[in-house]
Design a binder for these strands. Structure first.
Lengths: 243, 243
DNA sequence: CAGTGGTCTAGACCACTGG
DNA sequence: CAGTGGTCTAGACCACTGG
């Protein structure tokens, strides 16, 4: 799929904002101006701006214009990028250590999404400056994992390796306590609080291509979620009662 | 702000889908048909459909049409509504108990968003079938809380009471352990795992109108987050390292 | 092939901001 | 008041799906 007009405009504006051409709280050129500058219709320019709004980079005020977001918390999510980018941006050393790499039968909770007899399962530890901050288990279909080596998955994030254009993902976030082996691998006391996250990632075609479980020590990590329209459903915003 | 054309169409389509007029995995009428039915342009119809897509209710395939989502997990988020609606939908009894209601000075971590000497602080317990599942503390500006009674906040969700059109919200989710008083109020053992959530809610004008902290027993609750475009930033999806 | 969604255009009217 | 973003229209071309 080739780059669309509005994506190109969004990318260009994002680059300009991140380069500091327009500071936090300052006005962007009006939609009419941008429309003339880029030689695109106002609708296309708006579409690019809406995309940046979703990322938390800009906001708009009717009658005034589009402003670069100034609330640092709201910016966080849009600029977050990968954990690796986050770490190297802070000058910290990011490392990945493979604990296990094998083709095996998926557990039943994973079979719900990956209905196969054999899948590739990889257990990895993510470290920042040598300190573990995530214990990750990834399952992917045998066909997608067949070309991968243990060195590959130690070098690169999984989603870069499988060679399939990705669609969306669904993620659940829960709290728990570190089990004995988890505690040992993460270097935290057994029973200490952890964030548990499960992610089901789909390809552009809607096929499930990755299932992963992540365990984060509670004292090191938190999730940030931006809720664009609070509406009446604000009380929910993703919370679900289990059992 | 009065209802827009695309909101009205989205609401109508949502109602029809939830009523089962079009089953999971089945095709909706084409954009051209909907456009004719509603007497709206195709652009407006698409805007309504995009909104439903964000909610996880429908998905589209080029050359084929718009389908009602069949993946139950992806539907969850869109249909969630408030916790109260979730509970009554399951035939469970939802209850709200006010533990404290006072005008006071906000703690420093709240002053970051609500810069005032006096704010209304309300501590509430949410119960499902008599069992506590959330301990909530809400702070709001004195002016917005001046007309509220203790009975008001026991009866209704806060966002319905303050009489201000809401904009977006930013939410952080972390794991932790129940402190002594939290444990007593939630009816769980001290030190047991909990989800801790902080939400900063803005009005339509971008002003911060509510700051709230929520403590959920880990065994009862989880968050579901839909990530529409995984892209390269999939490893992040809102995770942030703290400290 | 006819029909679908994905993208884009040029133009319009409105509510709203600031001066 | 002139200028802004918010919404909406009618029309166009394209890539893609299924038969």
């Amino acid at each position: 799929m080739r780059q669309t007009r509005y994506q190109a405009i969004a990318d260009d504006l994002r680059r300009r904002i991140e380069a500091g051409a327009v500071g936090p709280g300052r006005l962007l050129p009006s939609e009419a101006e941008l429309s003339a500058d880029y030689g695109a219709s106002r609708v296309t320019v708006r579409r690019a701006l809406e995309r940046l709004r979703e990322e938390g980079l800009v906001e708009s005020r009717q009658g005034l214009g589009w402003l670069v977001a100034s609330d640092p918390l709201r910016q966080t999510l849009g600029r977050l990028g990968t954990i690796e980018a986050q770490l190297t941006g802070e000058g910290r050393r990011s490392e990945r250590r493979v604990l296990d790499f094998r083709f095996t039968r998926p557990p039943t909770r994973v079979q719900r999404w990956l209905d196969a007899d054999v899948v590739l399962r990889v257990r990895r530890l993510n470290l920042a400056d040598g300190e573990p901050f995530a214990l990750v288990t990834v399952w992917c279909p045998e066909a997608l994992g067949a070309e991968l080596s243990r060195a590959d998955v130690e070098r690169s994030p999984f989603y870069e390796l499988i060679g399939v254009p990705l669609g969306g993902a669904t993620q659940t976030i829960a709290a728990g306590s570190a089990g004995a082996s988890e505690a040992a691998e993460l270097g935290v006391p057994e029973g200490s609080p952890v964030l548990r996250c499960q992610r089901v990632t789909r390809s552009g075609d809607g096929e499930v291509v990755l299932v992963s479980e992540h365990v984060f020590p509670a004292h090191l990590t938190e999730f940030v979620v931006e809720i664009p329209h609070a509406d009446a459903s604000i009380a929910a915003s993703g919370l679900r009662l289990v059992e």
